[in-house]
Simulated assay, not measured.
Amino acid sequence: MTGLRRLGVHLVWRLGGRIPHRLRNVLCVVGAVLVHRLPLGGLKQWDSNFRKVMGRHPTHAERRLLVESWLRNNLMSLSLANWSDEDVLSRCIISEHHLARLRTSLAGPGLVVALPHMGSWDFAGAWCAREGIKVVSVAERLPAGLYEKFREAREGMGMDIHPMGKRALMDALADDVRAGRMVCLLSDRDLSRRGVDVPWPTDDHPLVVGVPMGPALLAARTGADLRVVVTIFRGDSVELRVSERIEVTSVKETMTDVVAAFAEGVDAAPTSWLMLQRLFRP
């Protein structure tokens, strides 16, 4: 079975990496129409997450756009290593003000970026590489050769990847920050069970989410700026929003502010929020 799974991963990557841009867009739109009404577990969980943060049920149109975003993110991840510079640069939407925030931090104390599962974080990394910004991140060790495929693909996009659980990982990331690289960490879901519980701001009942401590600890250790970057799908383009500096104090206070910035992004574009797993504490 392991051999068959590895073969399947290889075939999916080989075929997905060669889908032309126009066909990818058609597959995302048509696939979303076909899938969004199905009683799939991931979609049910997204519905639940959506209701908790938005205070209402998602519409069918929002559910369809969510599936479209999910498909677009995955197909982009499969193919970005094969995109030309023009393919990437022409599809990025970012204001000069937000770009200046990135460059100011990188030219000064260094930069640690916390990201939620929104839009295409792989696209953000590929775009940064084209802008001369060296990106470093951490990836979960996945089975059936998936980790190696994701690592190779992201290296092809211009990023360096450390495996989660690597010995002395924080030391390596601190060295990256000090070398002027932008360290990007997905930070809205704690996979280690060693994170910190913080509130997710809502107008209704309080929500609690467990998040990793890495961004706060790394920024405190290196003196780097800590910012949140949110990516939002705008059709086949991706908008990047860069937050102001997050004040680094205690881990809990710092990550509370990080999650507040995540919540702002979700409120602005909930159909780009690809959280199809359980997120909130009971």
Rank of each mutant, 00 (worst) to 15 (best):
V113R: 07
C128H: 05
C28W: 01
L27Q: 09
D47M: 10
R72P: 02
L111C: 05
A153C: 10
V112S: 03
R101N: 03
M255W: 01
N25P: 08
L142E: 08
R56W: 00
V67I: 14
R130A: 11
T59Q: 09
P212R: 02
G16F: 01
R64Y: 11
E131I: 08
A126Q: 03
L66V: 05
D257R: 15
G165I: 08
W273Q: 01
K52M: 11
M170P: 06
V33S: 13
H10L: 13
L78P: 03
V9N: 07
A107D: 14
G223I: 04
R18W: 12
P116F: 00
A220K: 09
A261F: 07
A144P: 10
N73H: 14
P109S: 15
A263G: 04
T222G: 02
L217Y: 08
P109I: 07
L40Y: 08
S90A: 14
H162E: 14
V53M: 03
W46S: 00
A124T: 06
V29M: 12
V242Y: 01
E253W: 07
L23K: 10
G108A: 15
I246R: 02
G180A: 10
C184S: 13
R227W: 02
M213E: 15
L43M: 11
V209F: 06
L78V: 11
V209S: 01
T202W: 04
P206M: 10
S105C: 15
R154V: 04
L217N: 08
P201C: 07
V88I: 15
A114W: 00
A172W: 02
L89Y: 11
M1I: 13
S250F: 02
G16S: 02
D197H: 14
G31V: 07
T231I: 04
W83S: 12
G125L: 04
A32K: 02
R72K: 12
K44I: 12
F233D: 00
I19S: 07
R91S: 10
L99E: 15
R37Q: 09
V242W: 03
F50R: 02
V33N: 11
A261S: 12
V33I: 13
V135T: 06
R56Y: 02
H10W: 14
R281D: 12
A174F: 09
G8R: 08
A172M: 11
W46F: 10
S187P: 06
V135P: 00
P163T: 07
F280K: 00
V30G: 08
F150M: 14
R72Y: 05
S105F: 06
L106A: 00
I94T: 06
K252E: 15
V242K: 05
R101L: 08
G145A: 05
T222A: 03
E62M: 04
D85P: 10
A129S: 13
T231Y: 04
L15V: 15
E247D: 14
E62T: 04
M76P: 08
E152W: 08
D188I: 08
G265S: 06
S192N: 11
Q277A: 13
G180T: 10
L40K: 10
A107I: 08
V183K: 00
M159G: 05
H162L: 13
W127C: 06
S79W: 05
A174M: 13
G195C: 00
M182F: 02
V248L: 03
A107M: 11
M170T: 12
S243L: 09
L7W: 12
L38Q: 12
